[in-house]
Amino acid sequence: MLLESLKGKTVGIAGCGGLGSNCAIALARIGIGKLIIADFDIIVQSNLNRQYFFIDQLGMYKVDALQTNIKRVNTDVIVEKHCLKLSTDNITQLFKNCDVIVEAFDLAEMKKMLIETVLTEMPEKFIISGSGMAGWGNNNTIKTINYEKLYICGDLTTEISENTPPLAPRVGIVANMQANQVVEILLNKQNQ
């Protein structure tokens, strides 16, 4: 079966918050071979409205808790975890063996930094970014746009604010769209 080929694939997840945790779990469920996850943060109460963590994991590093949760879903997934802040100095080295890189940060300047670094230093890599997913409702504004090897999932406009917090439904939609795009790319590559 075509999905079997996912076992031989590696996906990098840059950030393990709302986008990264949900995207990683989706890929683990369908049998991705290896996930390289990176984040420097710990889990706090406010994360639980959208991130794939649990009450008994409050205070843990996100990469440690996410590794545990991935393994609870699928023990076959190899998890390489990095508890650090990603920067222009370490991105290339960390993700060099990935077939696809998922941008899963919260801050726009970090999204920009990752996209520019990958497109400049690693032009052969596919990168799937998320931009615009705060608030609720407006299902049909969420889409994917594609420029060569760069894909952006989201509504591209709705920024987090007091009135538009990031919430499980829309963040989850975009995280799963990113995972869906990863699978499409990986299986298309397989066919070629």
Partner: peptide, 10 residues
């Protein structure tokens, strides 16, 4: 030319 506008949230 591609001009991408990135917004915070994730």
């Amino acid at each position: 030319v591609v001009v991408l506008h990135l917004v915070s949230g994730g």
